[in-house]
Nucleic acid binder design. Sequence first.
DNA 1: ATCATAGTTTGGAATGGTTCTAAATAGCAC
DNA 2: GTGCTATTTAGAACCATTCCAAACTATGAT
Lengths: 159, 159
Amino acid sequence: MSTATLPSATLPSDALAQRLADSGLRSTPQREVIYDVLLKKRDHPTADEVFARVKSELPTVSLATVYNCLETLVSCQLVRAVNFERGPTRYCPNLSPHAHFHDEQSGQTHDIELPPALLKKVHAVLPRGYDATSVEIIFRGKATRSSEQRAASSQPTRS
Amino acid sequence: MSTATLPSATLPSDALAQRLADSGLRSTPQREVIYDVLLKKRDHPTADEVFARVKSELPTVSLATVYNCLETLVSCQLVRAVNFERGPTRYCPNLSPHAHFHDEQSGQTHDIELPPALLKKVHAVLPRGYDATSVEIIFRGKATRSSEQRAASSQPTRS
DNA sequence: ATCATAGTTTGGAATGGTTCTAAATAGCAC
DNA sequence: GTGCTATTTAGAACCATTCCAAACTATGAT
Ligand SMILES: [Mn+2]
Ligand SMILES: [Mn+2]
Ligand SMILES: [Zn+2]
Ligand SMILES: [Zn+2]
């Protein structure tokens, strides 16, 4: 997708380097691999799961570094941290406004895109005096076969 | 159930006894006091805060019991557990469909009532195949003076 | 009343995700 | 290269919560 003559279109890794630089931070192998891992399999992994995936590329990485880098990516606004109840924090590189659907059976988390019109209506329930900087919407329930199929077909079947 | 002339109106403590009985559980002093504490000051206290408030009435209560009773109340559907990020779980006896507004400055949590029409529109963003049993909406931001006034005036000034 | 049984409370230990710490390492400016 | 700072690392510490096993309590059947 999106090649050549691109004006200032951001290749994923450049976006990372750029955002880090903007915050006065350095681009490091750990940060790059961790961000790549999040982009490659967008299943809202936990820090432990990221740790496991990163290890295969950087066998000596530490769990502390995974936490550090994830926090860095979140503070650079390249990744969102997502929490369900008191479970481990999950990480999501989808920056578009979206809600999360937590499938209680499978434990899987799905992104639900939110139309701007709906976001407006949601914000409109706030009485005067409430100034919200963000809103988070979490569905809980079960996703049936047709939604699994959607998810499966929209993502390469993984080697 | 529903005794004679009563329109079936439930005194708080009866509601508790009833719900517990429905679940085959006993009404105990600890459960009653903890539920009362939640009803009396509806500021979404943590288990520790509930513990402190209950101690003045039941000086020998244990923190484990507070956790046990809160879990019992949640499983009886008399209380909702509310989580913000990875902070300690907070407890809310407001059973009407409502969102939460987390004031980042003061740390206070406010209930935002949700009209059924909005809830419908929110559920409508779910694609086919997603069957949600619940939805949770959390705002984050700051509440200005006018909302503090509203909250203050709607609740007795506390002895 | 007494007893048997199951439910509940309690203090303390264990858990588990996350954060902290201090030392080692790596990148950048001069 | 030298010095300076950012980053990574292993392991300890943290802390909300859960687990455990022993006391205690309510219930209801004899
Ligand atoms: Mn789950
Ligand atoms: Mn806060
Ligand atoms: Zn997401
Ligand atoms: Zn509430």
